[in-house]
Design a binder for these strands. Structure first.
Lengths: 141, 141
DNA sequence: GCACAATCATTAGCAATGCTAATTGGAGGC
DNA sequence: GCCTCCAATTAGCATTGCTAATGATTGTGC
Protein backbone atom coordinates (compact mmCIF):
# COMPACT_ATOMS: atom_id res chain seq x y z
CA UNK A 1 0.00 0.00 0.00
CA UNK A 2 1.44 3.37 -1.04
CA UNK A 3 2.28 6.29 1.18
CA UNK A 4 -0.56 8.40 -0.12
CA UNK A 5 -3.04 5.62 0.45
CA UNK A 6 -1.87 5.17 4.02
CA UNK A 7 -2.36 8.90 4.61
CA UNK A 8 -5.82 8.62 3.12
CA UNK A 9 -6.76 5.78 5.45
CA UNK A 10 -5.40 7.71 8.44
CA UNK A 11 -7.29 10.89 7.61
CA UNK A 12 -10.54 9.04 6.97
CA UNK A 13 -10.20 6.88 10.06
CA UNK A 14 -9.63 9.98 12.13
CA UNK A 15 -12.63 11.86 10.87
CA UNK A 16 -14.91 8.83 10.81
CA UNK A 17 -14.05 8.15 14.46
CA UNK A 18 -14.88 11.74 15.37
CA UNK A 19 -18.18 11.57 13.54
CA UNK A 20 -19.09 8.24 15.08
CA UNK A 21 -18.46 9.36 18.65
CA UNK A 22 -20.24 12.64 18.03
CA UNK A 23 -23.28 10.84 16.75
CA UNK A 24 -23.27 8.43 19.68
CA UNK A 25 -22.79 11.23 22.17
CA UNK A 26 -26.34 12.34 21.47
CA UNK A 27 -27.45 9.21 23.30
CA UNK A 28 -25.93 10.46 26.52
CA UNK A 29 -28.64 13.01 27.19
CA UNK A 30 -30.91 10.54 28.96
CA UNK A 31 -28.31 9.71 31.58
CA UNK A 32 -28.60 13.03 33.38
CA UNK A 33 -24.81 13.25 33.60
CA UNK A 34 -22.42 15.57 31.79
CA UNK A 35 -19.88 14.06 29.42
CA UNK A 36 -16.88 14.20 31.80
CA UNK A 37 -18.88 12.66 34.63
CA UNK A 38 -20.32 9.91 32.50
CA UNK A 39 -16.91 9.09 31.08
CA UNK A 40 -15.31 8.97 34.51
CA UNK A 41 -18.12 6.81 35.89
CA UNK A 42 -17.75 4.49 32.95
CA UNK A 43 -14.05 4.00 33.65
CA UNK A 44 -14.70 3.31 37.32
CA UNK A 45 -17.44 0.80 36.56
CA UNK A 46 -15.38 -1.06 33.98
CA UNK A 47 -11.93 -0.89 35.54
CA UNK A 48 -12.97 -1.60 39.09
CA UNK A 49 -11.54 0.32 42.06
CA UNK A 50 -8.97 2.88 41.00
CA UNK A 51 -6.92 5.61 42.61
CA UNK A 52 -7.61 9.23 41.84
CA UNK A 53 -4.32 9.59 40.02
CA UNK A 54 -5.05 6.61 37.80
CA UNK A 55 -8.51 7.89 36.99
CA UNK A 56 -7.20 11.35 36.18
CA UNK A 57 -4.50 9.85 33.96
CA UNK A 58 -6.99 7.64 32.15
CA UNK A 59 -9.35 10.55 31.50
CA UNK A 60 -6.47 12.85 30.52
CA UNK A 61 -7.28 15.38 33.15
CA UNK A 62 -5.32 16.78 36.11
CA UNK A 63 -5.93 15.38 39.58
CA UNK A 64 -7.69 18.47 40.97
CA UNK A 65 -10.16 18.40 38.09
CA UNK A 66 -10.90 14.73 38.63
CA UNK A 67 -11.20 15.22 42.38
CA UNK A 68 -14.12 17.58 41.80
CA UNK A 69 -15.78 15.30 39.28
CA UNK A 70 -15.57 12.48 41.80
CA UNK A 71 -17.10 14.83 44.41
CA UNK A 72 -20.10 15.24 42.15
CA UNK A 73 -20.43 11.49 41.53
CA UNK A 74 -20.17 10.81 45.28
CA UNK A 75 -22.86 13.42 45.94
CA UNK A 76 -25.16 11.53 43.61
CA UNK A 77 -24.32 8.23 45.22
CA UNK A 78 -22.82 6.75 42.06
CA UNK A 79 -19.32 6.08 43.41
CA UNK A 80 -17.65 5.89 46.80
CA UNK A 81 -14.29 7.11 48.02
CA UNK A 82 -12.59 4.78 50.46
CA UNK A 83 -9.24 5.50 52.05
CA UNK A 84 -6.73 2.82 51.14
CA UNK A 85 -5.66 1.17 54.42
CA UNK A 86 -2.22 0.25 53.15
CA UNK A 87 -1.40 3.81 52.17
CA UNK A 88 -3.77 6.24 53.80
CA UNK A 89 -2.74 9.04 51.46
CA UNK A 90 -4.53 7.47 48.53
CA UNK A 91 -8.14 6.54 47.87
CA UNK A 92 -9.99 3.70 46.20
CA UNK A 93 -12.78 4.96 44.01
CA UNK A 94 -15.39 2.36 43.21
CA UNK A 95 -18.84 2.33 41.68
CA UNK A 96 -21.90 1.81 43.86
CA UNK A 97 -24.66 -0.55 42.76
CA UNK A 98 -26.58 2.51 41.64
CA UNK A 99 -23.62 3.74 39.63
CA UNK A 100 -23.18 0.43 37.85
CA UNK A 101 -26.87 0.23 37.18
CA UNK A 102 -27.05 3.72 35.73
CA UNK A 103 -24.41 2.73 33.23
CA UNK A 104 -25.00 -0.92 32.49
CA UNK A 105 -28.68 -1.17 33.39
CA UNK A 106 -29.16 1.98 31.38
CA UNK A 107 -28.54 -0.35 28.48
CA UNK A 108 -25.23 1.23 27.59
CA UNK A 109 -27.14 3.61 25.38
CA UNK A 110 -24.23 4.36 23.10
CA UNK A 111 -23.44 0.74 22.36
CA UNK A 112 -27.12 0.05 21.88
CA UNK A 113 -27.42 2.87 19.36
CA UNK A 114 -24.34 1.58 17.58
CA UNK A 115 -25.81 -1.92 17.35
CA UNK A 116 -28.80 -0.37 15.62
CA UNK A 117 -26.50 1.16 13.05
CA UNK A 118 -24.63 -2.08 12.49
CA UNK A 119 -27.87 -3.89 11.79
CA UNK A 120 -28.25 -1.87 8.62
CA UNK A 121 -25.11 -3.44 7.18
CA UNK A 122 -24.91 -6.55 5.08
CA UNK A 123 -23.55 -9.54 6.91
CA UNK A 124 -20.37 -9.55 4.85
CA UNK A 125 -19.83 -5.91 5.72
CA UNK A 126 -20.27 -6.58 9.42
CA UNK A 127 -17.66 -9.27 9.12
CA UNK A 128 -15.23 -6.97 7.32
CA UNK A 129 -15.86 -4.29 9.93
CA UNK A 130 -15.23 -6.81 12.70
CA UNK A 131 -11.88 -7.59 11.14
CA UNK A 132 -11.12 -3.87 10.87
CA UNK A 133 -12.01 -3.38 14.53
CA UNK A 134 -9.54 -6.04 15.58
CA UNK A 135 -6.81 -4.16 13.79
CA UNK A 136 -8.05 -0.84 15.08
CA UNK A 137 -7.71 -2.15 18.60
CA UNK A 138 -4.02 -2.69 18.03
CA UNK A 139 -3.60 0.71 16.41
CA UNK A 140 -5.36 2.43 19.30
CA UNK A 141 -3.44 0.58 21.98
CA UNK B 1 -23.34 -12.94 12.25
CA UNK B 2 -25.10 -13.55 15.55
CA UNK B 3 -26.66 -10.98 17.80
CA UNK B 4 -24.02 -11.42 20.47
CA UNK B 5 -21.23 -11.02 17.96
CA UNK B 6 -22.76 -7.82 16.65
CA UNK B 7 -22.92 -6.47 20.20
CA UNK B 8 -19.30 -7.44 20.66
CA UNK B 9 -18.24 -5.58 17.53
CA UNK B 10 -20.23 -2.53 18.62
CA UNK B 11 -18.76 -2.44 22.11
CA UNK B 12 -15.22 -2.91 20.86
CA UNK B 13 -15.59 -0.38 18.06
CA UNK B 14 -16.89 2.12 20.57
CA UNK B 15 -14.08 1.71 23.03
CA UNK B 16 -11.37 1.45 20.38
CA UNK B 17 -12.58 4.73 18.87
CA UNK B 18 -12.42 6.39 22.26
CA UNK B 19 -8.93 5.12 22.90
CA UNK B 20 -7.73 6.11 19.45
CA UNK B 21 -8.95 9.70 19.74
CA UNK B 22 -7.61 9.98 23.26
CA UNK B 23 -4.20 8.85 22.16
CA UNK B 24 -4.22 11.25 19.21
CA UNK B 25 -5.44 14.11 21.37
CA UNK B 26 -2.06 14.20 23.04
CA UNK B 27 -0.70 15.57 19.78
CA UNK B 28 -2.79 18.69 20.16
CA UNK B 29 -0.63 20.20 22.87
CA UNK B 30 1.79 21.83 20.47
CA UNK B 31 -0.92 23.87 18.78
CA UNK B 32 -1.37 26.27 21.70
CA UNK B 33 -5.14 26.00 21.33
CA UNK B 34 -7.68 24.33 23.61
CA UNK B 35 -9.60 21.35 22.28
CA UNK B 36 -12.84 23.22 21.47
CA UNK B 37 -10.96 26.00 19.68
CA UNK B 38 -8.81 23.62 17.68
CA UNK B 39 -11.82 21.57 16.70
CA UNK B 40 -13.79 24.62 15.62
CA UNK B 41 -10.84 25.98 13.65
CA UNK B 42 -10.43 22.62 11.97
CA UNK B 43 -14.05 22.65 10.81
CA UNK B 44 -13.73 26.20 9.48
CA UNK B 45 -10.53 25.41 7.60
CA UNK B 46 -11.91 22.24 6.05
CA UNK B 47 -15.50 23.26 5.38
CA UNK B 48 -14.76 26.73 4.12
CA UNK B 49 -16.85 29.76 5.15
CA UNK B 50 -19.69 28.82 7.44
CA UNK B 51 -22.37 30.56 9.45
CA UNK B 52 -22.23 30.60 13.20
CA UNK B 53 -25.28 28.37 13.45
CA UNK B 54 -23.77 25.77 11.14
CA UNK B 55 -20.52 25.76 13.06
CA UNK B 56 -22.31 25.42 16.38
CA UNK B 57 -24.42 22.58 15.01
CA UNK B 58 -21.37 20.79 13.62
CA UNK B 59 -19.52 21.08 16.91
CA UNK B 60 -22.60 20.11 18.92
CA UNK B 61 -22.59 23.27 20.92
CA UNK B 62 -25.11 26.09 21.36
CA UNK B 63 -24.69 29.29 19.37
CA UNK B 64 -23.67 31.48 22.33
CA UNK B 65 -20.90 29.06 23.23
CA UNK B 66 -19.60 29.03 19.68
CA UNK B 67 -19.85 32.79 19.41
CA UNK B 68 -17.36 33.10 22.25
CA UNK B 69 -15.02 30.50 20.81
CA UNK B 70 -15.04 32.40 17.53
CA UNK B 71 -14.27 35.58 19.50
CA UNK B 72 -11.12 33.93 20.80
CA UNK B 73 -10.09 32.70 17.35
CA UNK B 74 -10.67 36.16 15.88
CA UNK B 75 -8.56 37.69 18.66
CA UNK B 76 -5.71 35.44 17.65
CA UNK B 77 -6.14 36.26 14.00
CA UNK B 78 -6.98 32.69 13.00
CA UNK B 79 -10.45 33.34 11.56
CA UNK B 80 -12.45 36.34 10.43
CA UNK B 81 -16.09 37.25 10.87
CA UNK B 82 -17.66 38.94 7.86
CA UNK B 83 -21.26 40.06 7.72
CA UNK B 84 -23.11 38.23 4.99
CA UNK B 85 -24.30 40.90 2.51
CA UNK B 86 -27.29 38.86 1.37
CA UNK B 87 -28.61 38.47 4.90
CA UNK B 88 -27.03 40.95 7.25
CA UNK B 89 -28.23 39.07 10.31
CA UNK B 90 -25.77 36.26 9.69
CA UNK B 91 -22.01 36.03 9.44
CA UNK B 92 -19.48 34.18 7.32
CA UNK B 93 -16.70 32.72 9.40
CA UNK B 94 -13.60 31.86 7.44
CA UNK B 95 -10.03 30.90 8.22
CA UNK B 96 -7.22 33.39 7.73
CA UNK B 97 -3.98 32.31 6.07
CA UNK B 98 -2.51 32.08 9.54
CA UNK B 99 -5.39 29.89 10.72
CA UNK B 100 -5.02 27.49 7.81
CA UNK B 101 -1.29 27.35 8.28
CA UNK B 102 -1.54 26.61 11.97
CA UNK B 103 -3.65 23.58 11.14
CA UNK B 104 -2.37 22.29 7.83
CA UNK B 105 1.19 23.64 8.00
CA UNK B 106 1.29 22.22 11.49
CA UNK B 107 1.29 18.92 9.65
CA UNK B 108 -2.13 17.91 10.90
CA UNK B 109 -0.39 16.47 13.89
CA UNK B 110 -3.07 13.96 14.69
CA UNK B 111 -3.19 12.45 11.23
CA UNK B 112 0.57 12.43 11.11
CA UNK B 113 0.74 10.52 14.40
CA UNK B 114 -1.86 8.09 13.13
CA UNK B 115 0.14 7.43 9.97
CA UNK B 116 3.04 6.51 12.19
CA UNK B 117 0.88 3.95 13.92
CA UNK B 118 -0.39 2.52 10.67
CA UNK B 119 3.14 1.99 9.46
CA UNK B 120 3.60 -0.65 12.11
CA UNK B 121 0.92 -2.82 10.51
CA UNK B 122 1.48 -5.49 7.91
CA UNK B 123 0.37 -4.49 4.45
CA UNK B 124 -2.50 -6.97 4.49
CA UNK B 125 -3.67 -5.52 7.77
CA UNK B 126 -3.60 -2.00 6.42
CA UNK B 127 -5.73 -3.19 3.53
CA UNK B 128 -8.23 -4.86 5.85
CA UNK B 129 -8.34 -1.72 7.97
CA UNK B 130 -8.91 0.39 4.88
CA UNK B 131 -11.89 -1.78 4.02
CA UNK B 132 -13.17 -1.45 7.58
CA UNK B 133 -12.82 2.33 7.43
CA UNK B 134 -14.98 2.45 4.31
CA UNK B 135 -17.72 0.66 6.18
CA UNK B 136 -17.16 2.73 9.30
CA UNK B 137 -17.72 5.87 7.26
CA UNK B 138 -21.19 4.62 6.37
CA UNK B 139 -21.93 3.65 9.96
CA UNK B 140 -20.85 7.05 11.24
CA UNK B 141 -22.78 9.00 8.63
C1' DG C 1 -45.78 51.15 3.40
C1' DC C 2 -46.06 49.42 8.07
C1' DA C 3 -46.88 46.66 12.04
C1' DC C 4 -45.56 41.94 13.44
C1' DA C 5 -43.72 37.61 13.79
C1' DA C 6 -39.58 34.96 12.74
C1' DT C 7 -34.57 34.41 12.42
C1' DC C 8 -29.41 35.03 13.32
C1' DA C 9 -26.25 36.47 16.31
C1' DT C 10 -24.75 38.41 20.58
C1' DT C 11 -24.96 39.75 25.56
C1' DA C 12 -25.78 38.53 30.44
C1' DG C 13 -25.40 35.54 34.05
C1' DC C 14 -24.75 31.05 36.00
C1' DA C 15 -22.82 26.15 36.64
C1' DA C 16 -19.33 22.90 35.35
C1' DT C 17 -14.69 21.89 33.74
C1' DG C 18 -9.93 22.73 32.98
C1' DC C 19 -5.51 24.55 34.75
C1' DT C 20 -1.42 25.85 38.22
C1' DA C 21 0.05 26.85 42.82
C1' DA C 22 -0.35 26.05 47.54
C1' DT C 23 -1.87 23.17 51.39
C1' DT C 24 -2.93 18.98 54.11
C1' DG C 25 -1.91 14.60 55.79
C1' DG C 26 0.63 10.43 55.62
C1' DA C 27 4.89 7.38 54.33
C1' DG C 28 9.61 6.53 54.50
C1' DG C 29 14.73 7.58 55.02
C1' DC C 30 18.27 8.92 57.97
C1' DG D 1 12.68 13.18 65.69
C1' DC D 2 13.12 15.48 61.49
C1' DC D 3 13.25 15.92 56.73
C1' DT D 4 11.84 14.71 52.21
C1' DC D 5 8.60 12.81 49.13
C1' DC D 6 3.96 11.78 47.66
C1' DA D 7 -1.34 11.49 47.10
C1' DA D 8 -5.07 14.12 47.35
C1' DT D 9 -7.47 18.27 48.17
C1' DT D 10 -8.23 23.33 48.45
C1' DA D 11 -7.92 27.98 46.38
C1' DG D 12 -8.29 30.90 42.70
C1' DC D 13 -8.55 31.78 37.86
C1' DA D 14 -9.74 31.17 32.71
C1' DT D 15 -12.59 28.65 29.56
C1' DT D 16 -16.57 26.22 28.17
C1' DG D 17 -21.23 24.88 28.47
C1' DC D 18 -26.10 26.24 29.21
C1' DT D 19 -30.72 29.22 29.14
C1' DA D 20 -32.93 33.63 28.91
C1' DA D 21 -33.04 38.06 27.14
C1' DT D 22 -31.66 41.64 23.64
C1' DG D 23 -30.43 43.68 19.00
C1' DA D 24 -30.62 43.80 14.41
C1' DT D 25 -32.57 42.30 10.11
C1' DT D 26 -35.75 39.83 7.22
C1' DG D 27 -40.04 38.45 5.57
C1' DT D 28 -45.35 38.51 5.87
C1' DG D 29 -50.03 40.12 6.07
C1' DC D 30 -52.79 43.68 5.21
Amino acid sequence: MGEGQTRDVAARLHSASIRLLRALRREDDGSGLSAPRLSALSYVVVEGPVSLAELAEAEQVRPPTMSRIVDALVDRGLVTRVVEPRDRRSVRIMATAEGSQLLLGGGERRVHALIGRLHKLADSERRALARGVEILERVAR
